[in-house]
Nucleic acid binder design. Structure first.
Lengths: 345, 345
DNA sequence: GGCGGCGAGTTTATCGATAAACTGGCGCCG
DNA sequence: CGGCGCCAGTTTATCGATAAACTCGCCGCC
């Protein structure tokens, strides 16, 4: 036990060959005679040799690794996204690693400026805290595809869901099944461009307009998108004596909190209050009652994201501003998933 | 737009200094006169220079990055674990990246043999598929701490929860509150050493022994630890006409599925059937009714894991077998969390 | 006046793997 | 018999950043 990590030259020396030959044996990139090959393999095994990928990457200029940069590790949406991406990448011998920014604008900017993702062949960045302007003075030569629900600079490829249409679909269903006072939990000032909440709130507004109504302003309930806030939103509505016969929660996470709040208040779902969420998380099938929700076309999103990433990587220079690479803005279509928290049409 | 990434020498040339000076400016490791400093900074900005971390890492032999290797990205337990670790590491300017193995023994072994984690200063490996024997012929010079619920080779540091005691606590509570036929969903042949399920099943058995009873064998319900399996387990129990007045689910995920199954069967919780889970996931507070569960001491586990990792990293040679490094086996104590799916004592 | 020391930079060597160019020997063909 | 090409392997140069050793000019002190 030497205590120091053996290098390729160490292996070469004990096998009585050159380092290059060791490399050839290990990568299989060139022919090596069986005799030499086995000598090398034995030497490598004897020394407990392990390839240094850092060195290979420096030389090769590639890492065969894609990073997914998300605001939070512990939000199920990102976990599911990561799992889907990893499956696709693994099929072509590439790797996925997941990093976390922390969701604040500052943290995201820091994550960027740290030049950390020079370590990867490509980066999928889930944006929530940064504005389009922030992204605009982002300079990185790494192929970058944005995921997220805000309007983004045209200079980057961008994949998102059809938030407005999905929310409209959900709200329209609630209206069609008899609800008249539909609270939007996690709502924001309606706007198709400035983020997930504004877009989904816009869908809620538009569905009302389609039906020739106008939602009451007190039914727009602002809330951060977490479980606690969903429950608290219901508590507040109840405490304030605001009548409602349905909830459109802008995420499934919020919807799950809402269901908890409704149960606590003794409200029957869907008889007294219908609920529809958005995201179609794996867990949403298992709430009590099972959550009706909007499926944002997960599979479509991940395949598109990787397609774009590869296009940029192959494209001209992959540079931050130059080039006429892909630069597509893809919108994945949404679809209503009927379960038990809303009545059938 | 040159199209090629500028290097430190490029910056040096346009600033009229040496590459070393550029390095000194950028790292701030040595004094550089203000005049030179600003020339370098301008040159770097003008060229859009970005540090190549791969090269730095090769030279430095460190990456300031710790990897968490988990079986599945999309299991909430690992997401929460990652978030906690990331928070601790960020406090000391280190990074966490998460990688996925895929949970099969083969995939975990492949992940290992790929020498990928030479890229990190340390690795936290969540083991589920590999046996102690597999780990035994694992040779890696990277500081490694194991997380997971099986018995592990003494040669590695290992952090786990107190599965047996936690399960015993949960089951004892169910017995104390009047339940007599307690199904264990996700059960396995009782054994403290061979994995999470056997250990937790053992706790269930021991609690019965403590109370002077013996659980009926048909109440041991085997199931993979996912939502669907939890619901299916209940469906099976009901279909088979097996009587039960409580469920101890070996994970909160299973418990959530169980609650869905009970709701579907029209069973009242906790009046007809009490339920307790294990893991205390963030979402468990928001099931309907709110899930009583066992908290495995999350914070304790992550601080211990990092402490051990740092100890190994500093320890003698960090070698795979040599050295008398830390090599501790830490067991984090479990604690019962009372909520609504079980009656108060 | 001479010399130690310091400040600001530069030069050189190195981390470990590998692409590209090179060497030497052998077989085969005309 | 001369030469071409190939095989198996070696040598050299390189990826980009940086530690360590070195240079050079200037100041202050004895």
């Amino acid at each position: 036990m030497t205590g120091v990590k053996p290098t390729m030259s160490d292996v070469a020396r004990t096998a009585g060959v050159s380092a290059m030959t060791v490399s050839n044996v290990l990568t299989g990139r060139r022919h090596v005679s069986p005799a030499t090959r086995s000598r090398v393999e034995q030497a490598a095994a004897a020394l407990g040799y392990e390839l240094n990928l850092t060195a290979r990457h420096l030389r090769a200029g590639r890492t065969d690794t894609v990073a997914l940069v998300v605001p939070h590790f512990d939000h199920p949406y990102f976990g599911e996204l990561a799992a889907r991406l990893a499956a696709l990448l693994a099929a072509e011998d590439r790797h996925l690693v997941v990093e976390q920014t922390g969701a604040s604008r500052e943290a995201e900017l820091a994550a960027v400026s740290q030049a950390r993702w020079q370590l990867y062949d490509g980066v999928l960045l889930s944006v929530v805290g940064m504005s389009a302007a922030d992204l605009d003075d982002l300079h990185t030569s790494v192929p970058l595809v944005l995921l997220g629900e805000q309007e983004m600079p045209a200079r980057y490829d961008h994949v998102r869901m059809d938030n407005v249409a999905g929310a409209r679909l959900a709200t329209a269903h609630l209206l069609a099944t008899g609800s008249r006072r539909i609270a939007v939990v996690g709502g924001a000032d309606p706007d198709p461009a400035s983020g997930m909440k504004p877009a989904r709130t816009l869908g809620w507004t538009l569905a009302h307009a389609d039906a020739g109504t106008d939602p009451a302003p007190e039914l727009l309930v602002r809330a951060p998108a977490d479980l606690t806030s969903g429950r608290d939103a219901v508590r507040r509505l109840v405490a304030d004596g605001i009548e409602f016969d349905a909830v459109f929660a802008v995420t499934d996470t919020l919807a799950t909190g809402v269901l908890a709040g409704l149960a606590e208040a003794g409200v029957r779902v869907p008889d007294d209050v219908q609920v529809i969420g958005f995201d179609n998380l794996a867990s949403s099938e298992f709430t009590v009652p099972a959550l009706s929700t909007v499926d944002p076309g997960h599979e479509r999103m991940v395949t598109e994201a990787l397609r774009l990433l590869d296009a940029v990587a192959r494209g001209p220079a992959g540079g931050a501003d130059g080039g006429t690479g892909a630069r597509e803005h893809v919108i994945s279509p949404a679809r209503l998933v009927h379960r038990a928290t809303a009545r059938a049409r």
